[in-house]
Design a binder for these strands. Structure first.
Length: 421
RNA sequence: GUGGCUGUAGCUCAGUUGGUUAGAGCGUCAGGUUGUGGCCCUGAAGGCCGGGGGUUCGAGACCCCUCAGUCACCCCA
C-alpha cells in the first residue's frame, strides 16, 4: 500500500452510498415541507471570518482549523461549520433587503483537525438550518421541529432533547460573576482543565465530564435563574410552544453551547447510541452575530447536526435505509453477434427509464447469471447466437425462476408490463 | 496535544512454552451442467504476518523504535 487516506477521513464506498442518499433525501424532503431553501457556500473562506465569528478563545478556532496560505498569500480556512459562512453570504448578498425572514438550510462537508474517534472525523458532514431575521420564539421552536422531524421520520428512538437559555449581553455578565464567585470557593479542588477554564470560559465548567467537577458544581448557580426579563419571557414562550406541539424536552441548566455567538436559546439533541460524542445535533439563537460581522443587527436562530453520527445511530437502532439500487434488467450476452444486438436494445430500454446492466461478454453464461443474481437483477435477458438468428431473446424472472421467449421488438412492452403494474 | 487497546489473505479472525513449507470461514474466480443464478460439492488464485532494528541456531510470536487504526480525555456535529 503506497498511498493511504488522510487521517480522520473516510471513503464512502459504492456499497454504502445508498444510505447517504436515503438520509439526504429525507433531510431535503423535511426542509421542503418547512419551507427552507438550500444555500451552498464555498468550502473555504477567509480565515478571519471564522476567527471573528466563532471566537478566538474556542477550540474550534484555537486549534482545530485547517488554515493555509494561498499563492496570493491570503489566509484561507476550510470551513469548520456553516453558520459563519451563511451569515457572511446573507450580509454580502443583502438577503435581508429582499425579504424580512430568510430560511435556509445546508448539507455538506466540514473540516476540523482533531484526533478522530467514534463519531468524530476531520472531514465530516453536517446538515443544518439558519432562520435569519426574527427574534420571535416560534422561530427557535421551528428549527427544533425541523431537526426532530428528520430524526423522527427516520425512525430514531430514545433521543434526549435538552434546552436551555444562555441569556444575552445584559444578563449573562451578571450570571457569570455569580458563577465565578461560586467557583472560586472550590477552585483548588477542580480539575486542572477546569481551573484553566475558570479564566477563559467558566460556563463550560458546568458541563465538564469530570466526575469530581460535576459533584463540586452540584449547587452552582445556573443561568436560568439569572435571566433578564426579556430572556426569561422568551424562554418561557419556547417551552410553552414545545408543549403545545407535544414535543418532549428536558431543561438542562448546564447546557452550554461551545461557540461564542450564542444568545438566549441553546439546545442539543443527544443519543445514547453514539459513544462519548453523544450529540447528534445542537443549535441555538445568535442575535448578535450579524452585527459583529459588520451587517445590520439581525436576530437569527439555527442548528447543525452531524450526518455520520446520524448514520451511526440509525445503524445501532437497526433502522432501514431503503433498498440499494439494483438493475431491472441484466443482459446475458453470448458472443459478438449477440453483443451487437444487445447494445441498441439496452440503449432503448435505458431511454425508457429501465436500469440495465450488460454482462461481460467474455464470461460464461453461468458466470453472468451468477453476477446477475449477486446484483439482485429483477429480470435477466439472455441473448446468444440462436436468439439473434430468430430475432428473439429469453427473459427470465429471477424471483420466480420462470423463463420464456420473447421477440426482441416486444421486449420493452413485456418489461413495462412486468415492472410497472 | 495526552492515554488505553489493536495491527496475520479483499473481509472477520485462529496461529500452543519461539521450532519445518502460514491456517480457517466468508468473499472472488473456475469446474461439477457444449447455454442458466441462489443451495450443495470440488479446486484455484490471493500473505514482505504494518514498517525498521534487536535477541536467538531459529521470530508471526520476545524486546526497542516507528507508523497506522481504534476508543477515550480535551472539545465538538
Amino acid at each position: 500500500m503506497n498511498y493511504r487516506i488522510p487521517t480522520g477521513t473516510k471513503d464512502i464506498l459504492p456499497s454504502e452510498i445508498y444510505k447517504w442518499h436515503f438520509v439526504e433525501n429525507k433531510i431535503r424532503d423535511v426542509m421542503r415541507r418547512f419551507n427552507y431553501a438550500e444555500i451552498r457556500t464555498p468550502m473555504f473562506e477567509y480565515t478571519e471570518l471564522f476567527s471573528r465569528s466563532i471566537g478566538e478563545s474556542t477550540d474550534v478556532v484555537g486549534k482545530e482549523m485547517y488554515t493555509f496560505l494561498d499563492k496570493g498569500n491570503e489566509s484561507l480556512t476550510l470551513r469548520p461549520e456553516m453558520t459563519a459562512s451563511v451569515m457572511r453570504a446573507f450580509i454580502e448578498n443583502s438577503l435581508g433587503e429582499l425579504q424580512s425572514l430568510n430560511k435556509v438550510y445546508y448539507i455538506g462537508p466540514m473540516f476540523r483537525q482533531e484526533r478522530p474517534q467514534k463519531g468524530r472525523l476531520r472531514q465530516f458532514h453536517q446538515f443544518g438550518v439558519e432562520c435569519i431575521g426574527s427574534q420571535a420564539p416560534e422561530n427557535d421552536v421551528e428549527t427544533m421541529a425541523v431537526a426532530l422531524s428528520i430524526y423522527e421520520e427516520l425512525g430514531i428512538k430514545n433521543l434526549n432533547f435538552k434546552i436551555n437559555s444562555v441569556g444575552c449581553h445584559t444578563c449573562r455578565p451578571r450570571y457569570r460573576e455569580a458563577l465565578v464567585t461560586f467557583l472560586e470557593n472550590v477552585k483548588n479542588d477542580l480539575s486542572a482543565e477546569s481551573q484553566k477554564r475558570l479564566l477563559t470560559n467558566p460556563m463550560r465548567i458546568l458541563d465538564s465530564k469530570n466526575e469530581k467537577d460535576f459533584q463540586l458544581t452540584a449547587n452552582a448557580p445556573l443561568m436560568n435563574s439569572y435571566l433578564c426579563k426579556e430572556c426569561s419571557a422568551h424562554f418561557d414562550k419556547v417551552q410553552a410552544m414545545l408543549q403545545s406541539m407535544n414535543i418532549a424536552f428536558e431543561i438542562d441548566g448546564r447546557l452550554v453551547r461551545g461557540l461564542d455567538y450564542y444568545t438566549k436559546t441553546a439546545y442539543e439533541i443527544q443519543s445514547e447510541n453514539l459513544g462519548s460524542q453523544n450529540a447528534l445535533g445542537g443549535g441555538g439563537r445568535y442575535d448578535l452575530l450579524a452585527e459583529s460581522l459588520g451587517g445590520k443587527p439581525t436576530p437569527a436562530v439555527g442548528f447543525a447536526a452531524g450526518i455520520e453520527r446520524l448514520i451511526i445511530v440509525m445503524e445501532a437502532e437497526k433502522l432501514s435505509f431503503g433498498e440499494a439500487p439494483k438493475p431491472d434488467v441484466y443482459f446475458v450476452v453470448l458472443g459478438e453477434t449477440a453483443l451487437k444486438a444487445v447494445l441498441p436494445l439496452a440503449r432503448q430500454l435505458r431511454q425508457l427509464a429501465f436500469a440495465c446492466e450488460i454482462g461481460q461478454n467474455d464470461r460464461s453464461l453461468k458466470a453472468q447469471m451468477r453476477d446477475a443474481n449477486r446484483q439482485n437483477a429483477r429480470y435477466v435477458v439472455i441473448i446468444g447466437e440462436n436468439e439473434v438468428a430468430q430475432n428473439q431473446c429469453a427473459i427470465k424472472d429471477m424471483k420466480s425462476g420462470e423463463q420464456k421467449n420473447c421477440p426482441l421488438n416486444e421486449l420493452s412492452v413485456v418489461l413495462n408490463g412486468a415492472l410497472k403494474p
